[in-house]
Design a protein around this nucleic acid. Structure first.
Lengths: 150, 150
DNA sequence: ATAGATGCAAAGAGTTTGCAACTAC
DNA sequence: GTAGTTGCAAACTCTTTGCATCTAT
């Protein structure tokens, strides 16, 4: 986990990007909240604690950079804002279970979509580099606490 | 195809929604462009031809209504705007192949995700009602016309 | 007749950008 | 020293909302 940060710094260095304190606190926010899917605003709020002068624009620019460098992956859960998680986590493929009642996002590990990818590429000549599989439904907690949403 | 419209009108009637000319032209826009994944603005531009006084807000309100009634399904392809397709098409499940170079969205028919849904529900106690599977990559045309994006 | 629907303009939310000041290298 | 980065505010894009007017039933 700690040398994940070193590797990222190295990657930034190699591409002549500077390792600014702002970028450091943003990366640490993701490391410290590895189970979350943080939005730009959530990152901003976390990071303001350690670096109060940071601007929201810097957060957006850093997130864009990290996505370009394939360090973060941008995901959209349909709640009107982009969310981010480490790409390295996406490599051991997991899928997202999005609760339609409370909006919570659970994860489910599952690596068996490669065969489908190969099949599709064979059939359609579309070269697949990545996939995202989302399931929508209702989590146990929401089903238990009343049937507001069946 | 034509009685699909009748069914939708019936559904609107049953729920005491009025069948206004604006709603009619919007629905027809989707019927006439069944292969597209139209955005609100695209619908607006199509529909202005037949009904020049229509407002963009009406398009948004109608799309919301049709999503609520499960006639349309809202999809997000990561291009910063919501897109829509008939839910009935989603029922015979197909997945979206999104080209990272040109943004084109191809489709691939495939119905075999139910077993995975059942497996996940069993494992996690998350009750799944729907899923969305997107593949990202490069279409043949973009691969052929130069390797701008490898 | 009347509940619901519309068009317009203004407001909101999320994100991007121009620019002068700053800083990691 | 300098190219790259930052914070701020303004701009932009997509979407939603308030309200007076209109209309399908």
């Amino acid at each position: 986990m700690e040398n994940q940060l070193e590797e990222i710094y190295k990657k930034l260095h190699e591409q002549d990007y500077k390792i600014t304190p702002q970028r450091q606190v943003i990366l640490k926010a993701f490391l410290n909240n590895a189970k979350e899917h943080l939005s730009a605003e959530e990152v901003y709020n976390i990071v303001k604690g350690q670096y109060p002068d940071i601007g929201l624009a810097t957060v957006y620019r850093t997130l864009d950079l990290l996505v370009d460098l394939d360090i973060l992956q941008r995901i959209n859960f349909g709640d009107g804002r982009a969310r981010y998680e480490f790409s390295s986590r996406a490599e051991h493929h997991h899928h997202h279970l999005i609760c339609l009642a409370c909006g919570k996002v659970l994860e489910f590990d599952h690596d068996l979509l490669e065969s489908l990818e190969n099949f599709i590429t064979k059939k359609t000549d579309f070269q697949i580099t990545d996939h995202q599989l989302k399931f929508f439904g209702y989590c146990r907690e929401c089903r238990e606490k009343g049937q507001e949403k069946p």
